[in-house]
């Protein structure tokens, strides 16, 4: 069975090796700071104990107060999964760092999030709309209508 890596192990290990201490535990996922994303992602990918080689999916959820970006990670070798989360409180021009350099599989998915949710990924090689056309106004998956 695929196990979900316990979040306490993750938080402890990250705090121990990288020294990032402000990581919240959300029972089945961990919430990290935007600026720490790249180093944590590199760490999770390259540490043999975790070996999260594959970024299964990235998605974003609009919780009105903030955007949550969810990274589903998978280690084929250890058959384990983990979930990273970022929060983005800026509604006008939200932006988070891109992980394309670490997981190339993020390329199309990040473009999709920009297209549908309107979150910019900095340092993405080709940050263009993907499903909708370039002139489209707005980002359809946002919950602006609830505000």
């Amino acid at each position: 069975m695929t196990i979900n890596l316990s979040t306490t192990t993750l938080i402890d290990k990250i705090a121990q090796d990288l020294g990032f201490t402000e990581i919240s535990n959300l029972t089945d996922s961990i919430l990290i700071k935007n600026k720490e994303l790249i180093s944590i992602a590199t760490f999770l990918k390259n540490t043999p104990k975790f070996d999260f080689q594959m970024l299964v999916s990235i998605t974003a959820v609009d919780y009105i107060e903030y955007f949550e970006i969810v990274y589903h990670l998978l280690s084929i070798q250890h058959n384990q999964r983990a979930i990273l989360k970022l929060r983005c409180y800026d509604r006008e021009s939200p932006s988070v760092p891109s992980v394309v350099t670490i997981w190339p599989g993020a390329e199309l998915q990040e473009r999709e999030i920009w297209d549908l949710m309107g979150i910019q990924f900095t340092q993405h090689p080709n940050m263009k709309r993907i499903l909708l056309w370039e002139d489209f106004k707005g980002h359809p998956l946002r919950k602006d209508y609830l505000r």
Binding site: M1, L55, V56, P104, G105
Partner: peptide, 23 residues
């Protein structure tokens, strides 16, 4: 793996990964 490829394409590259078995 880096490009998040799954399914028969991943298995054709020699990686034995199938969710039916793994989970």
């Amino acid at each position: 793996i880096d490009s998040s490829v799954t399914g028969p394409i991943l298995r054709a590259s020699g990686i034995e990964w199938d969710i039916r078995k793994a989970n």
